[in-house]
Design a binder for these strands. Structure first.
Lengths: 228, 228
DNA sequence: TCGAAAGCAAGAGCACTGCTCTCGTTTTGT
DNA sequence: ACAAAACGAGAGCAGTGCTCTTGCTTTCGA
């Protein structure tokens, strides 16, 4: 086995064990030494492949974002009639929640408290944008599809328009400001719900998470004016 | 100084230093040994007052919930005309976000990723309910105030009614299911927004957080049908 | 082809963590 | 007055991230 092959293989093995450990004990308890033991290495050898524990976590973040991105895009693509924006939206929402429930520690790593002193490098943000990208795409298609009959949305003043600057840049077609606000609220609501559910803040109030999530996303469909 | 006095004083000192350290370095990096050094004790002595690091964190969680609860209730009480439900709602939302921005580590401790293997004891949930209580109170007052002219809300089937069981128990007056759903969505949206903002997920999209938050909460007021 | 350079794994070690146990001392309650 | 409980200190255990040195091996250029 050549040196390059060996390196690729070891990197893969380390990441694999790291992912397994992440799923088991969560990001906080992830131990470089334990990973080293698992792959049959001494701890210092791992540092040949990842310069620090944070770099390893970054790699896991990217992988997780990509996995969630895959799930989301696959869910969207799974809807036959592309004009069924409501079905596509619901599929995307369900995919996010399903993935989060199946991979709670990974979700917490992505959308929970950021690790102290950690600033997400560029590599993670591009992977992260795949998820928001799914929402943006739906927003654009909804806009271009014609009349939008959602809940009445307040006008956005010039100041509010400016505040959305980054979103405008990410959009390929123009979307009205009030529609953007609605879509951002939907995005926030979905992730807020998943976080609240997963982090135990609905424990005392909601008895049936599945049903309530369906209710909420159904309401979002109505508010967004997604016609079936 | 009597033994009881000394105990109270030491407990207070430890908690004070712990809070300071929490604000500085965050929950993950909170060190019992460092706290011990700060208060002039050896680390093992701290365990006479808090049986474990997690118990100390629990105490901090309770304190933080209470502080946020104070801020929220104070903001609500600060609105003169009690019938101005929109102003009260906006005040509560702003109080939550302001407190979160002023105390990001404390907010992360409360609403971020739960610490691994940690299950919130009863003592924390009662303090936590003060915040949700503020929303519930507004929901009830809005309902009893008469006609609600918010965004149209879909009917809630029996299954959805059951899912809200815990919320019904917390309510003193009956609130229609569709209204409860709307209020839960508002609650989710507010905390979802604050989490997304604080945890850096809006970094690329939103340029002016203050303005956008006002826009969002303003929209929530309209959706909830809160008349001024 | 051969020797320098670079990559690699191992081990020792540093500074730190949460936590336990023991050992004197001091304060309590009976 | 005396036993019991509480207390602080210290040593120690098992674990952590990370660095540095020491040999060995693969790679690559003259």
């Amino acid at each position: 086995m050549s040196r390059a092959e060996n390196r690729a293989e070891q990197t893969r093995a380390i990441l694999e064990r790291a992912r397994a450990q992440l799923a088991e004990v969560g990001p906080a308890a992830l131990s470089v030494r334990q990973i080293a033991r698992d792959v049959g290495l001494v701890s210092s050898a791992v540092y040949r492949y990842f310069p620090s524990r944070d770099e390893l976590l970054t790699a896991l973040i990217v992988e997780s974002y990509d996995e969630l991105g895959d799930a989301v895009e696959q869910a969207d693509a799974g809807v036959r009639r592309r004009s069924d924006l409501d079905k596509r939206f619901l599929a995307v929402c369900a995919a996010i929640r399903d993935w989060a429930r199946a991979n709670p520690h990974e979700y917490a790593l992505l959308y929970g408290s950021p690790v102290p002193g950690y600033v997400a490098p560029q590599t993670t943000t591009t992977s992260a944008s795949r998820i928001t990208g799914a929402f943006l795409r739906l927003a654009q298609e909804s806009e271009t599809a014609g009349d939008v009959l959602g809940a009445p949305t307040g006008a956005v003043p010039p100041k509010g328009h400016q505040a959305l600057g980054g979103v405008h840049l990410a959009l390929e077609t123009t979307v009205a400001d009030d529609r953007i606000v609605r879509w951002l609220m939907a995005w926030t609501t979905v992730f807020g719900h998943v976080s609240m559910e997963l982090f135990g803040h609905m424990h005392r109030g909601i008895l049936d998470y599945d049903t309530h999530f369906q209710q909420v996303t159904g309401q979002l469909v109505a508010d967004l004016g997604l016609t079936g």
